[in-house]
Design a protein around this nucleic acid. Structure first.
Lengths: 209, 209
DNA sequence: GGTGAGTTATGAACGATGTTCAATATTTTT
DNA sequence: AAAAATATTGAACATCGTTCATAACTCACC
């Protein structure tokens, strides 16, 4: 058999990523199989390896789309300029997105590539983009141009949220209900924010907001 | 073949857990294989399933030992009663343990059981124990008997640390160096602690420490 | 239209994996 | 000594990711 030319290379790429996305969303990244993807797009298992280096490569492509979705979601947020109002909104978007696409989220942040594969550079570019958007909510506190302190604060807060939701997913920690996760996330945000303001005030004295 | 009785059931259990622990420590939980464990203890693959329900069950046993080690480590900490001094010490123990046993740590907190397996109850008991120990560092702030608020605070902080180290391990986030992980962890702790004190002060007015 | 070169999908094959279970070798009981 | 009970085995099964010689197709050119 060969060269059906039913689909161009580009079309095949799209079809396979879409199929993989559907499988991951339905069964989790652990349920993704070369043979399943092949069957879903009507090609043979070997064909996947004409388009992707390996399964990890395919997962990376799915994750890229998920990141774009998340970026679009964050883009729709309009900030008030008051961190104590804006940060909870961002956190809520974070939580809502994770709840809406739990398996895609897991593939994005829980999955570890097998030895030999690495996240491509543009991957970090997208994550940077995400941080920059969130950072805007926190800039009023530090007053500086989007730079050092506010970036660290957002990274830390992001990691904290990740920890809460990740432990909730794995079932460790005492967390059971979604409500607990949500309240812990908002508690962390509020407390951390209070700490930021407090420590900033203790340092260089700035004009109040 | 059969019934060598070279080892009792209990001995076999110990040997296999020890072998699994060595393999995980050396190659990560992904490198753990029934056949590898079998070869390491000089038995056949099938024998593992006479002692353990499946590989996940074996991993749970290894993790239990790791938890005990962590509990012992935490037990050696003596507190001063000043949270701003004690919390960083606990965080340092957390980080040091993770750095000393990265693969065992990963098996403990990153690994997700396959569908059908669940963490046993005593597992959560050990985690509770850990939290109770850490909680002591924070009780002076809330003044209450080890109960609601201080427990939530410790859970949240723990989750936050988990998030930082977990993202660092997976390579996501901009984190590269260990130093960055460490500084982010301490930054989170300090800021969160400042927030706790600040919010507590804003609520019911208590005698200062 | 035919022919040959170039390309692409194939699916059988390989070496793994977790897990099962009839068969067997040993011990214990009678 | 014979029989019952038990522990260990390792071949077998289904599945996995991945490879690659082969076959089937397309296309440019004569």
């Amino acid at each position: 058999m060969a060269r059906r030319s039913d689909h161009s290379r580009e079309e095949l790429f799209q079809m396979m990523v879409a199929a993989a996305r559907r499988i991951i969303a339905a069964e989790g990244v652990g349920g993704l199989t070369a043979r399943k993807v092949a069957k879903a797009v009507g090609y043979s298992p070997g064909s996947i390896y004409n388009v992707f280096k390996n399964l990890d490569d395919l997962i990376v492509q799915v994750n890229a789309e998920t990141l774009d979705l998340l970026i679009a979601d964050f883009g729709a947020i309009s900030l008030s300029g008051r961190p104590e109002a804006d940060l909870p909104v961002i956190v809520e978007h974070y939580l809502a997105f994770e709840e809406a696409h739990p398996n895609l989220w897991s593939a994005l942040f829980d999955y570890n590539l097998k030895e030999g594969s690495h996240w491509p550079d543009w991957y970090f570019g997208k994550i940077e983009q995400l941080f920059t958007m969130a950072e805007a909510a926190v800039v009023p506190i530090y007053g500086d141009a989007p730079g050092r302190e506010s970036r660290i604060a957002i990274q830390t807060l992001w990691a904290g949220l990740h920890g809460i939701t990740s432990l909730a997913r794995s079932g460790s920690l005492g967390i059971v209900a979604d409500a607990t996760t949500r309240s812990m996330a908002h508690h962390l945000t509020a407390t951390y924010l209070a700490g930021m303001i407090e420590e900033k005030g203790a340092g260089a004295t700035k004009a109040p907001l």
